[in-house]
Design a protein around this nucleic acid. Sequence first.
DNA 1: ATTGCTTCCTGAGCGC
DNA 2: TGCGCTCAGGAAGCAA
Length: 266
Amino acid sequence: MPELPEVQTIVNGLKDKIIGKEIIGIDEFRNNTVHNKTGRKISEFGKIKNINRIGKYIIISTSSDIKLVVHLRMTGKLIFKENANINPAHLRAQFNFQDGSVLYFDDTRNFGFVNIYKKTQSVDYLRKLGPDALSCKFSEEYLNNVIQKRKAPIKNLLLNQSVVAGLGNIYVAEILYRAKLSPMRKSYKLNFEEVQRIVEITKKVLKKAIKHNGTTISDYRNIDEKSGEFQNFLRIYGKLKCSCGEDVNKVKQAGRTTYFCPQCQT
DNA sequence: ATTGCTTCCTGAGCGC
DNA sequence: TGCGCTCAGGAAGCAA
């Protein structure tokens, strides 16, 4: 469910609420949710030191050099409460802090996970990620270089987390619409000016979405269970008509729904 | 190496 | 009301 802006909104919320809190335990309510690869007891993890984001991954680091890697996939939510007083419908795990506050991990479809490593452990799936979409490493030169060698449609390439980390189905649709590029265009056929447009618009759209706390279509909520507001700024994803009057086309690309306007996007 | 299809899982929304 | 079908902000794991 969540893409970069939604994950960033969650990270911002967590920074506000849980830095400095000591983890005293993690309860698991569904199998295969929490994977502790540290060889250490959860009671030894210490206090939350920092929270970061790489692509759609949330990285929570602690004072005893542990990192908790959380991925929410389609329906995962993190919900923070000062007291353990709610019972989320699809609770998979909860983090208990020394002061009685709780972080719930709720996930309807069971696709998400919490993996725990020592700081020094190398994490394969993180190593394989491309540059984060908001980092300066995701530049015109970088994307142009990657794109020249690829035959896949530009939409599929932008969804590939090893090319650029953080984009998902909604934001790729919005970016290509605003860049006036057809999602079906073969990557290597884009010229440098078009690549520039993609990179520039990507950063602009993501920043604006973060400012509006992400996009809520159905499941996504921040850690206070509040919806985002960027759905009010969507121009193509989920739309029936383009502002030009043309019907929005809906096709499948690599198993995912693509929305585009055949008039405006070429 | 790159690509795209299938799969994991649950629930919402729709037509009948 | 209820059944069956399709669809969903993701990404591993395959096979070609």
